[in-house]
Design a protein around this nucleic acid. Structure first.
Length: 200
DNA sequence: CGCCCGATGTGCT
DNA sequence: GCACATCGGGCGT
């Protein structure tokens, strides 16, 4: 059993967390069963001035969690059918979050397959809404504490991914966001194939 | 493979 | 009303 990531991991500059969360293990526990994968893609959403960040529209009922303490999950619903999983970062009162965009599944593959019927295994968790469906992450987990195992959603430590295996690119799906935010290289991706980059 | 588009519901103007 | 941190199927290349 690996080490649970503590509050201190999240209570930092969100760009550093987004970069360093690559290689960490996202774990879900459902009915006592462990489902997990290594994080291979993440994006930073940084403070009210970042016009791609939900917090830029102010603190609302939806975005309250992002303004709160670090180490909690910000889970929101979008496009009428998709859930997105974020990690709240930085000090209480400063809105910042890391969107988990992809994982490399390692445990509970039968559970994941059952949640992604008819989908090829390489496509099970390679998108932010795909992995929430695969791991059964939805609104009931919004605001849950990621630094304990109580809610059945948490992160475990893993090796830092080598700098040579990480690419930084602009964020995805924010086409209506003006510059300079549109082009900020705040998306971090593990190079393919992840098996080699992650030493699996 | 890439582009296009419909699905589908909630939050905020 | 309308935008939206997306997905998957359909069709053209």
């Amino acid at each position: 059993m690996s080490k649970l990531l503590t509050r201190g991991f999240y209570d930092r500059e969100v760009l550093d967390v987004a970069r360093e969360v690559l290689g960490k293990r996202l774990v879900r526990v459902v009915d006592g069963k462990r489902i997990s994968g290594i994080i291979t893609e993440a994006e930073a959403y940084r403070h009210v001035e970042d016009l791609a960040c939900h917090a830029s529209k102010g603190k609302t009922p939806r975005t309250t969690v992002m303004f709160g303490a670090p180490g909690r999950a910000y889970v929101y619903f979008t496009y009428g059918m998709h859930w997105m999983l974020n990690l709240v970062c930085e000090a209480d009162g400063i809105p910042a979050a890391v969107l988990i965009r992809a994982i490399y599944p390692l445990e509970g593959l039968d559970f994941i397959e059952a949640n992604r019927p008819g989908v090829k295994s390489k496509l099970w968790c390679n998108g932010p809404a795909k992995l929430t469906r695969a791991l059964q992450v939805s609104g009931e987990l919004n605001g849950c504490d990621l630094t304990t195992r109580a809610a059945g959603l948490f992160l475990e430590d893993g090796p830092l991914v080598d700098e040579a295996q990480v690419r930084a690119t602009p964020r995805i799906g924010i086409d209506y966001t003006p510059e300079p935010w549109l082009s900020k290289p705040w998306r971090f991706v593990v190079s393919n194939p992840p098996e080699a980059a992650l030493h699996l």
